[in-house]
């Protein structure tokens, strides 16, 4: 059986049950209520679920992940093991904006495994950059006054050279 997911723009994605099972919200909406109420689940392809906060490009990317993980046990919150570390890192990539939107959508759609992966992706991008580089990357304005910077340098002591945003 299949389910149609409708993105923000209205694009429709036909997905099979094991793939849709990865998405917590869809699982709860499509099966949860009907199961608990004792009704049979609709078996035709015409059932549609609108995900109004997820754009088509992000939804298609998320569905790639769901397709890859469709045979795995769903992760529960707090679980941190990854089945395919190499594939995961190649999938999430280093495009910060895209990871951010995937993270936001994974939170919205309740996909703990993807949420974890996206957080790791962001951490991987942040790791090893100096503070100035992070500002440029994320469009952050350094809002410390000169005096605060001097104070922080003093506070950080020996680590000053490491922490200094240059």
């Amino acid at each position: 059986m299949s389910i149609t997911l409708i993105s923000k723009e209205g694009a429709q994605f036909l997905v099979s049950k094991p793939v849709a099972d990865r998405i917590g919200v869809v699982r709860d909406c499509a099966y949860g209520a009907d199961f608990w109420l004792g009704y049979a689940v609709a078996t035709d392809d015409s059932m549609g679920i609108t995900l109004a906060n997820v754009t088509s490009s992000i939804l298609s990317k998320i569905l790639v992940w769901c397709e890859h993980y469709k045979d795995m046990e769903p992760l529960v919150d707090g679980d941190s093991n990854m089945e395919f570390p190499e594939w995961d890192m190649a999938y999430i990539g280093h495009d910060m904006n895209q990871i951010l939107f995937v993270l936001e959508a994974a939170d919205y759609l309740h996909i703990p495994g993807l949420l974890l992966l996206a957080c790791k992706g962001i951490a991987d991008v942040l790791d090893g950059r100096n503070p100035r580089g992070i500002c440029d990357l994320l469009g952050i304005v350094m809002d410390f006054s000169h005096r605060q910077e001097v104070d922080m340098d003093k506070e950080n002591g020996y680590w000053r050279w490491f922490l200094h945003p240059t």
Binding site: Q12, M47, I49, T50, A52
Partner: peptide, 10 residues
């Protein structure tokens, strides 16, 4: 905005 998530026949 219409309800964000609806379970309906398209």
């Amino acid at each position: 905005v219409t309800p964000a998530l609806t379970l309906s026949h398209s």
